[in-house]
Computed example of a mutant assay.
Amino acid sequence: MDMLVPAGAVITVLGLLGLIYCIVEVARAKRAELGEDALRARLQKAVALNLGALGVSALGLMIVVVGVFLA
């Protein structure tokens, strides 16, 4: 049970890194001056990654909360 908080923190940080990666990718896509279809395709991929990273981060925070309650 003592490992839940650190494990949850690591998972949360991985999710946050994924969110930062999404921000960087969207900024790169907008600076690349792509056509509308190419830009839309890149942004759709970024949205999928963004939702996944947000889910991972939320899961990590839930693990931290459970670890705090059980400690």
Rank of each mutant, 00 (worst) to 15 (best):
M62P: 00
L61I: 06
A53D: 06
V66T: 04
A41H: 13
G55A: 14
L43N: 03
A38G: 14
R42P: 05
V26G: 04
A48N: 06
A9K: 12
G8A: 11
M62D: 10
P6T: 05
A32E: 04
V24C: 05
A29S: 14
L16G: 08
K45G: 14
M3L: 03
G15Q: 08
L17I: 11
G15H: 08
L49S: 12
L70Y: 10
V66I: 13
A53S: 15
A29I: 11
V64Q: 13
G15N: 05
V5Q: 01
R28K: 14
A46R: 06
V47P: 04
L61H: 06
V10I: 07
K30G: 02
G55Y: 12
A27T: 05
D2Y: 00
I63V: 15
L16T: 07
R31E: 14
I63T: 15
R40P: 02
V66F: 08
V56Y: 03
G8K: 09
G15E: 09
R31T: 06
A48W: 06
L19Q: 13
K30L: 15
A71F: 01
C22A: 11
L54C: 06
L39Y: 11
V13S: 04
V65D: 07
L61V: 07
S57M: 15
A58P: 04
V5A: 00
G67Y: 11
L59G: 06
L54T: 13
S57G: 12
V10A: 11
V13L: 12
A7I: 12
A29Q: 09
V66Q: 02
A71R: 04
M62H: 07
D37I: 05
L19S: 10
E25G: 08
C22E: 02
R28F: 04
K30I: 12
G60R: 09
L19H: 05
V65L: 13
A48T: 09
G35C: 05
L4N: 01
L61Y: 06
G60V: 04
G35E: 04
L4P: 00
T12Q: 08
L51T: 14
A38T: 15
L54M: 12
D2I: 01
A58F: 15
A53V: 03
L16I: 06
V64D: 09
G15T: 06
D37M: 09
E36P: 08
G60T: 07
Y21E: 15
